[in-house]
Simulated assay, not measured.
Amino acid sequence: MSKENFEKQIRKRMEQLDEINEHGIFKELKGTVTDFNYDTKSLTMTFEATKFHENAFGIMFGGSLAGMFDIAFGTLTAGLGDYSVAPTVQLSTTFLKGIPTGATVRTEVEAVSTGKTIMNFVGKAYVGEELVGSASGTFMTPRPFKKFNTEK
């Protein structure tokens, strides 16, 4: 994929994410693409740890961090391919520090490999300059993508 196509696909995915229903996980996490780089096959997104994501300990629920990585990896997948959806095959998240409610979480993700059927990613999450989590993920590149939900 060319640099121009990469940037076009990332911008297209950003528009699609803006159109997702208002109660979808992306909207609830208030995600924003802040940077992407074709040469390093990387992407940075920020998310908000709102009260909606608070757990019984008064910090962000760990599943929200996993969701942040899933969205960031998926967005990068869209930039690296000619499709807008790539199913998650595997996602492993390491939680290093509790994330306070109200914090802005920055995820920095990059592609490790981009094959014809599988893409692998790694990422780190920060609050300010503090590392709060890391993740790795594997995504299937659809050729063609089978739509499982047939309801209209």
Rank of each mutant, 00 (worst) to 15 (best):
D82P: 05
V105L: 07
K3A: 14
S134M: 09
D70G: 03
G81K: 09
E130R: 02
G123S: 01
N21Y: 14
N5C: 11
T94F: 02
T50Q: 08
I59W: 01
A135P: 00
T93D: 00
N120F: 03
G98T: 09
T150I: 12
E7P: 05
Y38T: 01
A72T: 15
G79A: 03
V89E: 03
R143L: 04
M119A: 14
Q9N: 14
E108Q: 05
V122Q: 15
R11M: 07
V109H: 09
G62P: 04
A72K: 06
G81R: 12
A135L: 00
A111Q: 03
T50S: 15
V132T: 10
G128A: 08
I59S: 10
N5M: 14
N55Y: 08
G67K: 01
V112N: 00
V112A: 00
S136H: 07
M60G: 07
G74D: 04
E110S: 13
M140A: 14
K97N: 08
F52M: 13
E28M: 15
T77C: 11
T150E: 08
K146M: 00
K41T: 05
T107L: 15
L65N: 13
P87K: 09
A78P: 10
P144M: 05
F69T: 03
N5P: 09
K152A: 14
M119C: 12
K30R: 15
G67L: 06
N120T: 15
I25D: 02
I25N: 06
R13L: 13
G128N: 07
E22Y: 01
F121V: 02
A125I: 12
G115C: 00
E4L: 12
T46Y: 15
R11P: 01
S84W: 09
D70P: 07
A78M: 08
F36K: 07
L65R: 10
T141W: 10
M119K: 12
K30F: 12
S92E: 02
F121L: 04
T104R: 10
E110Q: 14
G98Y: 10
G24M: 14
L65Y: 10
D82F: 02
H23D: 13
L43K: 07
T77D: 08
P144R: 05
S84M: 14
E19T: 04
M68R: 10
S113A: 01
V85T: 05
T32S: 11
P142D: 06
A78I: 06
N37V: 06
P87R: 09
V122I: 14
E130S: 02
P100E: 13
D70E: 11
V105Y: 04
E28S: 15
T104M: 10
P87W: 05
E130A: 05
I59A: 04
N149A: 06
I99K: 07
D18W: 08
G67D: 02
H53D: 04
T101W: 06
G67M: 01
E129H: 10
L43R: 03
E129D: 13
Q90Y: 15
A86D: 02
G74Q: 03
G63P: 10
T117M: 00
V109Y: 15
V122A: 11
F139S: 05
E7V: 12
N149S: 02
G137V: 00
G81M: 09
A125N: 12
R11D: 10
M68D: 06
E48W: 04
K116A: 01
S64Y: 06
S84H: 09
